[in-house]
């Protein structure tokens, strides 16, 4: 089996190479189809924001502006988290034109936990599970119409989720 396939391999390789090149050319011919997906991919990972230790610095790096508290940002989170490794938190808002929703835990070694981008047509509501090192304020930021709104809640943690 292997002997025969070795015999034919040079031609096979050529054929595969040819196919590869054809595929590349094919891709090049339809860049406009790919553009919307690339636009999302170009929304680069905010690495700087995920390096900041403090909440304020993370918000600055991520949004470059300050948030105002809003009662239209509703956070659904437990009062007490028995296990800091898995704290379920969800957020929903009645604000219009929401473009992003972010979660920050001020007492975590890195404050920013997650940031979600909400394209038009996607509902401004996100649920996820986060880690908390210890009892801390959890801040949710909602960017809507170019402005930043926030809601804060203290969650008590009985067992830390960051190697405590």
């Amino acid at each position: 089996m292997s002997i025969t396939s070795n015999e034919f391999s040079p031609t096979r390789r050529l054929v595969l190479k040819g196919a590869g090149i054809a595929a590349l050319i094919g891709l090049g011919a339809v860049p406009f189809d790919v553009a919307p997906a690339l636009a999302a991919a170009n929304d680069a990972y905010p690495a700087e924001a995920f390096k900041q230790k403090s909440e304020a610095d993370a918000i600055k790096a991520l949004y470059g502006k300050t948030a105002e508290p809003s009662d239209r940002v509703k956070m659904d989170a437990p009062e007490i988290a028995e296990n800091g490794a898995v704290v379920p938190i969800s957020v929903t808002t009645t604000l219009a034109d929401v473009t992003s929703i972010s979660f920050l835990v001020s007492e975590n070694p890195i404050a920013l936990v997650a940031s979600y981008r909400i394209p038009a047509g996607t509902l401004p509501s996100v649920g996820n599970r986060i880690k908390m090192a210890k009892t801390s304020n959890v801040t949710v930021l909602v960017e809507a119409g170019g402005k930043l709104y926030s809601a804060v809640k203290e969650i008590k943690v009985t067992v830390g989720g960051c190697g405590g």
Partner: peptide, 25 residues
């Protein structure tokens, strides 16, 4: 062909992450 949701995550997201959202259409 269009992005409906994009998550940027750090190490503070729980192991075996879970996420929930909804979109129109």
């Amino acid at each position: 062909g269009k992005p409906v949701f994009l998550a940027d995550w750090g190490g503070g997201v729980s192991k075996d992450p879970y996420v929930k959202f909804a979109f129109k259409g």
